[in-house]
Amino acid sequence: MSSRAPLAPYAAVAVTVLSWAAAFPAIRLALRELQPVPLAAARFAVAALLVLGWLAWRRPQRPALPDLLRFALCGLIGIAAYNILLNTGQRTVAAGAASFIVNTAPILTALLARLALGERFGARGWAGTLVSFAGIALIASAQPGGLAFGAGASLVLGSALCMACYVVLQKPLVARHGALACTAWTLLAGALWLSPWLPDAAGELPQAGAATVATVIGLGVLPAAIGYATWTTALGHFGAARATNFLYLVPPVATAIAVPLLGETPGPQTLLGGAVAIAGVVLVNTRGRAGSASAEPPAPRRVPS
């Protein structure tokens, strides 16, 4: 029994990477029959049902009013706005390209933390930022409209900015309520913000095929609920610094899944841009890492994906 125990954290990492990576091609697949915002509303309605079940089971401490308002803001920015921008952008941006762009959220988080929280961001951080955004420019130039305002790639980059804002906003909440409870309250808030589009989703889903309906349910269950739970397990075993390194696998895996599922084969420019973007993220994430493994982990970037 003890010889099998070390496999559990690696299994948790595998589930996290696969579920978060599969979200990008799954969104592209569902967008063939659903509009972007109703898709987000339906997906998080499914997630909200799971969240309500978890809250009834675990009964975490209810947040005070100031924290409830902050959770509402987290749900607005990190769930509703993130998914509206991501889904709309993915109408024209390939799944692999979108995953590489979203993977730069830690850099945007570090920049916002520098501005809002006064955290250090030295020469290594700025160099990594420049490298990563050079990679984004390469990816975007291979997508329709490039990085022009309103183009798909710019909307996906906007979703990454939303995720960065969410991480900074959520940071004090994690210390008070714990990672899983924070995710539950944020997902529930996001579902409420998206609920006005549920009637549209209810009108579109009956006309969609069974594969699309199954995809929506899968998006509500796997990346948000199961993926976050397994990510929390990985964080507890490996620590934040080491566990975050596994997330560099998400864009390549998303790209690989999109090839058979969607027939999207990335071109050399997208692959080169993705490699450059990840190199920049690695450069930023490894600055001053000494002693960071025991620090409070940031909220995962892939919750809404």
Rank of each mutant, 00 (worst) to 15 (best):
H177Q: 03
I27P: 01
F133T: 15
V253C: 09
Q61K: 07
T265C: 03
G190H: 05
D67G: 02
R91A: 06
P38H: 08
G227L: 08
L31I: 13
A11W: 02
A181D: 09
L261P: 03
R176F: 08
T244K: 08
V13R: 10
F149M: 13
A80K: 10
A98Q: 04
R302C: 07
V174P: 07
V281I: 13
G280Q: 05
G118L: 05
L76P: 01
C165V: 04
A11I: 11
V51E: 13
T109M: 09
Y10D: 08
T212Q: 03
Q61S: 13
S141T: 04
S132A: 15
C162W: 06
T244F: 10
W126Q: 04
T244I: 10
P300Q: 05
P206H: 11
L112S: 04
L85I: 00
M1A: 12
L68V: 03
I84G: 01
K171E: 13
Q269K: 03
F100E: 08
I257S: 05
A241C: 00
P206N: 11
P106T: 00
A224E: 10
L161A: 13
L115C: 05
G263R: 01
R242G: 02
A293N: 15
L180F: 15
L73P: 04
W193A: 04
L49T: 13
R59L: 12
T255S: 13
V281Y: 05
L272K: 05
G125A: 14
G125P: 02
K171A: 15
R124V: 13
P66H: 12
A256L: 14
L111K: 04
P144A: 14
G236Y: 03
V13T: 08
Q269E: 10
W57P: 09
S154M: 13
A279C: 14
L55V: 14
A290Y: 03
S195D: 01
Q170W: 00
V250H: 06
A189V: 10
L247M: 14
G146F: 07
T232C: 15
P25R: 05
G236I: 09
F71K: 10
T129F: 08
L112I: 13
I79M: 14
W185H: 14
R289M: 11
V282F: 14
Y248K: 00
L187C: 06
P25V: 06
L249C: 12
A164E: 01
